[in-house]
Simulated assay, not measured.
Amino acid sequence: MSLSFPVSVEKNAALQRRMAELEVLESHLEETFIRSSGKGGQNVNKVSTAVFLLHIPTALSVKCSIYRTQGLNRYKARTLLCDLIAEFKFGVEGSKKEAIRLKIIKQKKNKTRKSKRKI
């Protein structure tokens, strides 16, 4: 069963491919909706827009309340969960966050070298 989220078709397809690569099935996910907090006015107080996802085989969980709509939070929670599972399966080297962190460290080193050369 393929879920459809309120994002572009390409993003939906990319998420489905990523979940298939990581062997994450919808039947492995336990999804609950909870009330969000923060910006959003009365909508936040009345509607359960935050999403809590639990991946049963790995016991990894994600709570997402970034957006004001439930559909976008469901999509984002699945992408965050895929990131966590990739980090869990492949270690720190395989994660996007680690690659970004290393890139920033390298940029800072280059900046300090450049400033030392000027002196």
Rank of each mutant, 00 (worst) to 15 (best):
A13L: 14
K114T: 07
K103W: 10
M1W: 04
Q16A: 14
A20Y: 04
K114R: 05
R68I: 01
S115L: 14
V7I: 08
L72M: 10
L102N: 07
F90M: 09
Y75F: 15
G38V: 01
Q42F: 02
S36N: 03
K97P: 11
T69D: 15
K116I: 13
K118I: 11
V7S: 11
L81C: 01
M19A: 03
Q70F: 07
N45L: 11
R17W: 04
R117G: 15
T32D: 01
L80A: 08
L22W: 03
M1R: 13
V92H: 11
R35I: 13
E87S: 09
T112Q: 08
G94R: 04
I119W: 12
R18H: 10
V92Y: 12
S95Y: 00
K96Q: 14
S61E: 10
R68P: 04
E10F: 09
K39P: 15
E26A: 05
F33L: 09
D83S: 10
L102M: 11
T49W: 13
V9W: 10
Q70W: 06
K97D: 11
G38N: 01
L22I: 00
T49S: 08
R117E: 13
E10K: 15
I100V: 15
L102W: 00
K116Y: 08
C64G: 05
R78G: 03
I34K: 10
G94H: 05
C64N: 05
A77R: 12
L25N: 00
F90H: 10
T69L: 06
L54D: 02
P57K: 00
L25T: 02
Q70E: 05
R117N: 13
S95Q: 01
E93M: 05
T32N: 09
I34H: 04
A77I: 14
R18G: 08
T79V: 12
N12I: 04
H28G: 02
K97Q: 12
R18V: 07
N73S: 08
E98Q: 13
E87D: 12
S61R: 15
S65R: 05
P57M: 03
E21M: 11
E93P: 07
T112M: 09
L15T: 08
E26P: 09
V47M: 03
F88P: 06
L15D: 02
I119T: 15
S4R: 13
K118V: 14
T112R: 14
E98P: 03
S48Q: 15
S95C: 08
I105M: 10
L81S: 03
P57L: 01
R113L: 13
L29E: 01
H55K: 00
C64Y: 01
K39M: 04
K103R: 14
V92A: 11
I56Q: 06
T69H: 07
L102R: 15
T32G: 06
